[in-house]
Design a protein around this nucleic acid. Sequence first.
DNA 1: ACTAAGATGTTACCTGCGGTAACGCGAGTC
DNA 2: GACTCGCGTTACCGCAGGTAACATCTTAGT
Lengths: 215, 215
Amino acid sequence: MDTTQSTDQERSADRRRRELLEAADRVVLRDGPGASMNAIAAEAGITKPILYRHFGDKGGLYAALAQRHTDALLDSLRAALDAPAERRERVEATLDTYLAAIEARPQVYRFLMHPAEGGQPGGDQGFDVGKLSAPLLRRMGEELGKVIEDRLDLGPDSRRLARIWGHGIVGMMHAAGDWWLGERPCTRAELVRSMADLLWGRLAAAGDKVGGPGF
Amino acid sequence: MDTTQSTDQERSADRRRRELLEAADRVVLRDGPGASMNAIAAEAGITKPILYRHFGDKGGLYAALAQRHTDALLDSLRAALDAPAERRERVEATLDTYLAAIEARPQVYRFLMHPAEGGQPGGDQGFDVGKLSAPLLRRMGEELGKVIEDRLDLGPDSRRLARIWGHGIVGMMHAAGDWWLGERPCTRAELVRSMADLLWGRLAAAGDKVGGPGF
DNA sequence: ACTAAGATGTTACCTGCGGTAACGCGAGTC
DNA sequence: GACTCGCGTTACCGCAGGTAACATCTTAGT
């Protein structure tokens, strides 16, 4: 009759999907990535085939799960990036936001950076070289690149330069954050300051060490 | 009798090990990471248990394999880093060396950055947060950190700063290289120049864009 | 009211993986 | 000749991802 029924069904299916995702989230948060489909289904109170009907395969579920977290994190980062402040302050705020996020929920972070391996045997041949690294890194790199291009005046090659810097800075943040999370060699604030110093050219400005090997 | 026998045996075992590693290398190069132990054993003309006797488990084999390539790449990088030239030239040479390596053999690169997932079910609980990212990244970060600390005069916090920068720069190189390898948005030389520009403080020096949103 | 359709859920199974136990066999040693 | 010991095999276990086939309950059509 009216559309309420179809919308009800639609809503029901959608709600179910969200419930499943939340269950999956709990399991991944508890068991880390590599959580089995069986475990996730059990947590959701159902059995495997339902998961497969909703998400196709494990990659689909993980992609859906990853997108939720990625979107959330990207929102935080955009907020820090858009704050009304000096450029250096904004950069530091963005770095700090990212680090705070991975510090608060390392399991989620680990899951986002380690997306399920993928690649079934057969057909993958011949230098495919697609989706090498985590989608989150790519998305963050692209976003930052856009922001840089929008905000900064970089001369003729502005577009190319901005994208390269976007991916580069995100990679720097990621690698340093990963190492820091493992070894905790200093406070978060120190790490943020040090990285900002690097981006502000202190590497180029530093003097050679006296008595160095050969020069 | 004399030691020739034991040395012969030793040599034999060692040679076997090398043969197996080379076979594994071929398979990984062909099938990418995720190559099965069966496939590797078949390529070597033997069966699985022999692999397990030599390397313990899949992680052991992959670790041995990874170390060969990692050592080779690190040697190249050290050479570029130690060249007698201006700092900027050395930085560019190092970046270029890395990019040339991943460009020449993307499958190897992919394998090195995607180390086997690990983590058997059970016991892994409770915020372990170890070995999050690829060992190659860590090693490169540490090495670069040492070089920076040795060469540059960074004031009081020299040690901390150098390590942070080491990991950060390596991460920048990795992420930008990964993205570049996938999309090929520019030449290698352009990428190298752009990254060096970033490290040389062009981000801080750039002017705000006129007509930007709000400032 | 009876039936047809379709979503929702199940059990039971297939394939392929990492990993291992048990056995076979040839070469040296006493 | 018996004993061991390195090298190799077959056959198997457990568990993962993924699927086929069956059961069920709701809803629509006549």
